[in-house]
Design a protein around this nucleic acid. Sequence first.
DNA 1: TAATTGCATTTTGTATACAAAAGATTGTAC
DNA 2: GTACAATCTTTTGTATACAAAATGCAATTA
Lengths: 235, 235
Amino acid sequence: MGDNFTVNMDEFLPLRDVVFNTLRRAILTGELKPGERLMEIHLANRLGVSRTPIREAIRKLELEGLVTMIPRRGAEVAQITEKSLQDVLEVRRALDALCVELACDRITFEEKEALKRACDEFEEATRTGDVTTIAGADVALHDIIVRATGNQRLIQLINNLSEQMYRYRFEYIKDEKGHDNLVNEHRMIYESILQGDKKKAAEAAKLHIDNQEKSIIRQIHLEREQQLKKKDKRQ
Amino acid sequence: MGDNFTVNMDEFLPLRDVVFNTLRRAILTGELKPGERLMEIHLANRLGVSRTPIREAIRKLELEGLVTMIPRRGAEVAQITEKSLQDVLEVRRALDALCVELACDRITFEEKEALKRACDEFEEATRTGDVTTIAGADVALHDIIVRATGNQRLIQLINNLSEQMYRYRFEYIKDEKGHDNLVNEHRMIYESILQGDKKKAAEAAKLHIDNQEKSIIRQIHLEREQQLKKKDKRQ
DNA sequence: TAATTGCATTTTGTATACAAAAGATTGTAC
DNA sequence: GTACAATCTTTTGTATACAAAATGCAATTA
């Protein structure tokens, strides 16, 4: 349990939203680990607020699928199993395809420019080799495409589904040797959208997800092995 | 405002969940109308509980998109605009297609039997002409297909998206003259799944959504006209 | 030693209290 | 009559209090 998740009081938001964002980030970055119990008083003390905003934040996290509730026992950080990840990816595959198809039809000139820029910036980011930078550039790129659909509901859903993967994002980006594949996949999507070629765009998007899936699952297996090793040592 | 939404104390659930279900149903059935304010003390008095479970229920409704929050002003029942409905349907079109495709691959023998029964029951229901019966049979039928995918996340998402349409469901089923189209569309989907013909199934599912979209939007326009007429009369 | 019972502690679930902001209302000035 | 200001009310946001369930531990018993 790292010490530095503190509330960001700068933002002018109800405490429940501040807490919500704080806990969410803590879960996504792995600061709060799967299975860890979220005890209200602890969190309240830690964040310097009362239980009320904590509880309300947890209700939302529950519906987002980031925590699971056990009645009269409280909340704990949701486990990511291989099955649940595959479920998410199966849905994302369809929604990402829809996304790029809609983007083909609806992307504006300005958005095309932004997309091009984001693509270049991602390529640059990969050259720095810094995981955080790469992750940021990746999010930015995808955001532009998603927003180009103009479909609020779709935007919200994809963001929520992405969350589930962000927990593995760092490992996954680390895993990608050279990142050349990622760059190429992005280029492919980017070009298809510029050309307005829905079919090609959809295929590229699906391929992108498939590769991420493989990469993330490889990571999960690696982690599992490491955990087993630890256990062996202890015994 | 009808009087009879009361908490169902029979269920052994935390009050927040009881309240959540109660409010949700009230919104979906139109008992709580779009734009109506959800004031905590009123609801608390009405449901005979304190503000705390009300607030926690509202947080979840917020994330589900059934209520919108205005800071320091509280919650109100979310408006359904034509745009928001189209957004939902655009997503559902993709997800329903995914659904039937997955069902083609994964449906078990028992589920096939259940599907056949549900199909027949739906046809019978249309003959009764009773809207509630028809709606029930429709939900049952779709539920079988959705569950056959075995994808928890997909099940959850489709249920959530369906909610947005349930608010119009009654009008929409009323609108369908003779319901023959509905029966045929269901048959088409059903047969494709039995045959394991993904492509045909996906097409049928999309057609099904498209027709619903047309029908619902026609209803929205009708409602709007009626509201305008009322306004005219008053002035 | 293993199991069980009883008690103390922790933690959640719910209610209530209080402060601050938003909204409504009344009164006054022009 | 309208505009503005002061005040009063309502309503949310947050904290705290209290009850009931769950958990952990120790002592007792078989």
